[in-house]
Design a protein around this nucleic acid. Structure first.
Lengths: 348, 348
DNA sequence: CTGTTAGCGCCTTCAA
DNA sequence: TTGAAGGCGCTAACAG
């Protein structure tokens, strides 16, 4: 069973255990545990504590995570359930979550990423196996049943109940609608994603509502494609002609990845942006700033979304009984760049 | 200590344990263990096995990962140590590693990401705490001492010893040198990263060597900046004038993120690409294809790097004693797009 | 083919 | 202030 240390003599690279530290410091394992876990206060004399600390340093002792987890019931790990971490937005959420969880747990907590490339099912086994103390969900509808008590925080999923931190996408969408209305646009194509997530429904609804309110006879044509650069590029290249022919003068994509793909597709199709067609997106990923033309987009605080989510999750883990409370809502705002301009006259 | 189930009566949401399954199926825990771990063959009768399986399904039993880890010494988790997962290259490596580890372990293995934003130290505590069975390193020089026996696979770090999977960046760099030489360039600025990693040194050396070999009187000016979109953009905007004045007609960046930043910076400075300055990078991240102009770059198989690395790591974990063997080297090749063109005449 | 049992390493209550 | 000891849930010898 044991696979290190051989039988009898001290193997070559056996990690030291609490007993070893105790022996070297001349104390019991309980004392070591107290010192290690910062519970020495009032239980262990300063002198003893120092001896233990010395022994730990000398031996290079590090508490075994599995053993501790088994004993305490705490794994000190949380998962981030996300779709496609290759998407810069997701990557930033992850980065924010990583710093957030570290901060909220004094560096003792860690992030386990559960990804799902493309349309595959995410691998949620760790959740069931209690590998994590909680999960951050940025991928609606993927939490497995069977663990109804697990601490969960939903990210940017307004339709979800429970603990959540969301984005005020509606406000941003309305700003964008006003911006396009001001530029004289009357007919815009709304390029949605293929995922039935509430955040996307909200983006579309708020935009369409405000646009219709501001522009008499406004037309919003619905279209959709995967949240993927190449997919959006090909889609746009193929539809460009039809969009213009239908009288549309702008394209609003549900995400920047799609918007950037559209930019590339239109470029390939010889459609000038914003000369012939304006383009805008949501997210404000870093690359939106360096595209040509730079992308007008509704900036969403991805990093903070992840950060706040992690901090909130840490609280929920700490006190699972506490009721959800008001959902945290992070602001969104329009960033106007070069991809949107005055509406052009129709082709004919 | 226990925090679920209260005392005595069956708590509200206590997860079922192996004993519960055993009781329900009328067998011992050992039998349950065998069935769960696929070791029933020849030990448990098919009928018994089915009863156990039924009980597992009925109870919704899932083996506790911590307990299993403690008992087996296997954590079923590996870590990916990377710098800035916000970089698309890193994100793709991670995506590849995730599928690779899942594949190599039949879905029982998982990925733990250890990130390090900016210049911070990565959080390698999980490694010391034996939270993982091995680690994939894409961040040279960050593995902590104290666990010399830990299975490790180095990614794209030719200077590292041991198990590794690398990229043939030299071949790609030489192709790029030839491409620029053919276009008539004689003086190019090499925009390196600020990190002293062997892969970057190799990119530069191979490029410079080949360029000098092909172009009589070739000049390669060294410059550097952080691997960050904004940093590269600002750097380029500021240096653009100087670069052109010095006679340089092309800029080769160590990574695509930097190259795209340069593109943005030059655009802002009113320098035409490739009209006045050609630009090229390394990686071929998805966004390189949709920039304007599309970026000429040395394509590096990020996804496969992660995938192969994970598969190799799984093998090393399986058989830690096996010697490293020939390092795996993945091919790199030049992808010519619109950001490079004929060398222009000097300004004066 | 199946049950019993001794750890895995740590935490924590209870005595001393 | 410190030590002894039970238990966390599972795996894998070892008996039967």
């Amino acid at each position: 069973m044991r696979d290190a240390g051989g039988i009898g003599r001290p193997g070559p690279v056996r990690r030291p255990r609490a007993v070893d530290v105790a022996a070297r410091a001349g104390v019991s394992v309980a004392t070591v545990s107290f010192v290690v876990n910062g519970k020495a206060e009032g239980r262990v004399s300063p002198a003893t504590r120092l001896r233990v600390l010395d022994a730990i340093a000398a031996l290079g002792y590090v508490t075994d995570a599995s053993a501790r987890a088994l004993a305490t019931g705490r794994r000190r790990q949380v998962a981030l359930l996300a779709h496609d971490m290759t998407n810069p937005f997701t990557a930033q959420v992850a980065a924010g979550a990583a710093t957030g969880i570290a901060e909220a747990t004094d560096g003792t907590g860690h992030l386990l990423l559960l990804l799902a490339a493309g349309l595959d099912e995410p691998d949620v086994e760790p959740v069931g196996a209690a590998t994590v103390d909680g999960v951050l969900i940025n991928y609606p509808g993927t939490l497995p049943a069977g663990r109804p008590d697990l601490p969960v925080v939903h990210l940017d999923d307004p339709a979800a109940g429970g603990h959540q931190v969301s984005l005020d996408v509606a406000v941003g969408a309305r700003e964008l609608a006003r911006h396009l209305a001001d530029l004289g646009h009357r007919h815009v194509v709304h390029l949605d994603s293929n995922r039935p997530w509430s955040t996307f429904a909200e983006r579309r609804a708020a935009f369409a509502d405000e646009f219709a309110r501001l522009v008499p006879g406004a037309v919003v044509t619905d279209d959709r494609c995967d949240i993927d650069l190449a997919a959006a590029r090909d889609h746009a290249a193929q539809r460009a002609e039809g969009w213009r022919r239908s009288g549309a003068t702008a394209v609003v994509a549900a995400t920047d990845v799609q918007a950037l793909g559209v930019l590339a597709g239109l470029h390939g199709a010889g459609v000038a942006v914003p000369g012939q067609l304006s383009v805008a997106g949501f997210d404000d990923i870093p690359f939106a700033e360096v595209s040509a033309p730079p992308l007008t987009t509704v900036a969403l605080p991805a990093r903070e979304l992840g950060h706040r989510g992690a901090v909130l999750l840490a609280q929920v883990i700490e006190d699972p009984a506490a009721p959800p409370g008001e959902p945290v809502v992070l602001p969104a705002h329009l960033v106007v760049r070069g991809s949107t301009g005055p509406a052009t006259d129709l082709i004919r």
